[in-house]
Simulated scan of single mutants.
Amino acid sequence: MVTPTTWEFAGTRGAVTARVWAAPEPRYVAVLVHGYGEHLGRYGHVADALVRHGATVCGPDHMGHGLSAGERVLVEDYEDVVADVHTVVEAARGDHPGLPVVMIGHSMGGLVAARYAQLHGAGLALLALSGPVLGRWHVVEELLPLEEMPTDPIDTATLSRDPAVGLAYSADPLVWHGPFRKRTVRALDAALRRVNEHGSLGALPVLYVHGEADRLVRPEDSRVGVEAVRGPGLTERLYPGARHEVFNETNRDEVLADVTAFIDRVLGG
């Protein structure tokens, strides 16, 4: 497995740590955008598959997440997260001028990636969304009216049919295991509405993948957002029985093969 390097930059709300998995002779750059409460270190196997496919892979730990600075999981405005992702993309372009850039966003990272594509889609070759928080999210709708955030931890059984995934998640000290921040919930609500209202991604090729048995980010809710941003270049795959983290599911090899096949179809190769 490829060992990543890290670098730090001054993000919009404090120091942000980014990871890079370098390929010796890359033919494209893949930018990974992770989900709520986690960090990019959980994506080593995804990065390894992409590096073997010909990518240099990079991405940040979002503010308040993983190795980056900030109060844990506090996001005041998701436009700031998008701006930090843009810093990573521009750095990758500087290191690899002329290479196409693909973006892969999971869960909350799918919301960030979709918004990035709305603002900077002309600079992307394609977008892949995995179990994206788009359209509406029942978690936000349930938490928004509450003054106090519940302290119940996430049910790790919702992540994958592979029990080792939940065990690793629970034991990971860089994963946030506490409650939502109320300001983050408000920011998520604003970001969902903003993406819905902004509209289609136009001709940008988009791959949408989702586990049919995902109860953490329900496919029927994400469908609302996918329909709001879709253009003529949408390809989708729903995996029967799969839960939220399709890159960590028992059929992860199939999912990763679908992603790399989509990249080949768009980029050629």
Rank of each mutant, 00 (worst) to 15 (best):
P179Q: 07
P97V: 08
P179K: 02
D61H: 10
H62K: 07
V226R: 05
G41C: 06
N248D: 07
L50Q: 02
L40Q: 01
V73T: 14
Y78P: 08
A242G: 11
E8T: 15
A187E: 06
L146C: 10
A190R: 07
S170R: 14
Y36V: 13
H210Q: 05
V81P: 01
H198V: 11
V185R: 07
Y36H: 15
L234K: 11
E90Y: 03
L74V: 15
L201M: 08
T156S: 12
T156A: 11
V88H: 13
V33C: 09
A257L: 12
H177E: 03
H120M: 06
R181S: 01
G44Y: 04
V266G: 03
A191Q: 06
R183V: 11
L144N: 01
V33D: 04
L74S: 02
A55N: 03
I154Y: 10
L188K: 05
G54H: 08
A125D: 04
G41N: 05
T6P: 00
P163M: 10
R237F: 07
L127K: 07
R93G: 04
S160W: 01
G44D: 13
H45N: 05
Y36F: 15
D155A: 14
V101D: 07
R194M: 15
G98F: 07
W137P: 00
V175S: 05
P219S: 13
L238A: 15
Y169G: 08
V133S: 04
D155N: 12
T250S: 14
V224P: 05
P60Q: 11
L126Y: 00
L159G: 04
R13V: 15
R115H: 13
Y28K: 00
